[in-house]
Amino acid sequence: MTALPAHWLDKDRRELRLKESAASDRIYELLTTACALVVPALVVSIAVAIFAAAWPAFAKLGLSIVTSSNWDVAGGHFGAAPAVFGTLVSSAVALVIATPLAIGVAIFLSEFSPVWLRQPVGFLVDLLAAIPSVVYGLWGIFVLIPLLREHVMPFLRDTLHLGATPFFSGPAYGPSMLAAGVILAIMALPYISAVSREVLMAVPRSQREAALALGATRWEMIRDAVIPYARSGIIGGIMLGLGRALGETMAVTMLIGNRPEISASLLAPGYTMASLIANEFSEATNDLHLSALMAVGAVLFIITLIVNAVARWLVWSVARSRAQ
C-alpha cells in the first residue's frame, strides 16, 4: 500500500489470490456438499432398511397391523392399533399441557422478566431438555405416579365430577395415559419454550413501539403485535415438541402401564408404538414377530413424516398469510 506498487506485481498477486481462493472454495464446496448428502442418504437408508424388514409382516398381515387390536405373539396375531392410538393420544395430551405452559414461560422471559431473572429461568428450562429420559421415568414412578394416583386423579374424577365423562372414568391405578402425557409434556416443554423465546426476542423493537404508540396496553401489544409476528416460529417449536413426544420411549414405557387396549379414559393404562418395540425387540425370535415390530417402526416413521410435513405446511401457510 505504500509508494511504489509495481502494477504488474500487484495484478499478478491479485490473480494469484483469486485462483487460490477459487480452489479452496471448490474444496469447501465439495466438503459441504458431501456433508449435506450424508443426511438424506442416511434417512433413505434407514427408511429402506425398516421397510425391507417390515415387508414380510405387511405382506402377510396387511393393514391389520394398524387396524386390529389383537397383539398376541404366541397366537401369531400382530395388531398394533392400541399402540398407534396410545402414541397419538399421549402426544396430544402432552401438547395440550405443554403448549400454554411453554408459551407462557417464553412470553414471561421475553416481555416481563427482569433481566437478572431471565438468564437463570431460561437456563433451568433448557436444563429440562438435558435430563436423560430414564431419569424422567424414575422420577415418574416415585413422584409423579403416587401424586397422580392419590391426589390428581381422584380430584379430576370425583371432585370435578369429570368421572361422569368417559375420559376420566374408571379406577386410578397410577400408570396411565395421563401419567405418560404429563411426563411427555415436561419433556417437550423446553423445546417449545426455547424456540418460542428466541422468536419472541427476535420480534423487532419497532413492532412493539408501534403498537404502544397506537395506545395498546402491554397485553394488547403482545397479543396483537408480538405473537402474530412470531407465530410461525412458535408453531415450529410446538412441532419440534410433538416430534419429541411421538418418539419418546423409555420414560413412557415406565409410566404408561403397557396395556395394549384402546380406552377412552385417560386414567386407564395404554401403550405406545415406541414402547412396544422397545419391550419386545430384544426377546423376539420368530421371524414374523420381528417383522411385525419393524412394521410398527415403519408406521411410526410414517406418522413422524406426516407430522413434519404438516408442521412445514403450517409454518409456510402462516408465513404466507402474514405476508399478504
Binding site: 389383537n70 397383539w71 398376541d72 405373539v73 404366541a74 397366537g75 414412578i141 416415585f142 391405578y173 397410577g174 400408570p175 414405557t253 415406565m254 402401564g257 403397557n258 396395556r259 393404562p269 419391550n279 419386545e280 426377546e283
Partner: peptide, 22 residues
Amino acid sequence: KGKEIKWPVGIGGKGNEGVAGQ
C-alpha cells in the same frame, strides 16, 4: 407359555424393577 403373554388383566411393568416398583 412364552416370553410374551397376551395378559387378560393388569398393568405391565418393564423389567423386574418395573413390576416390583408397581
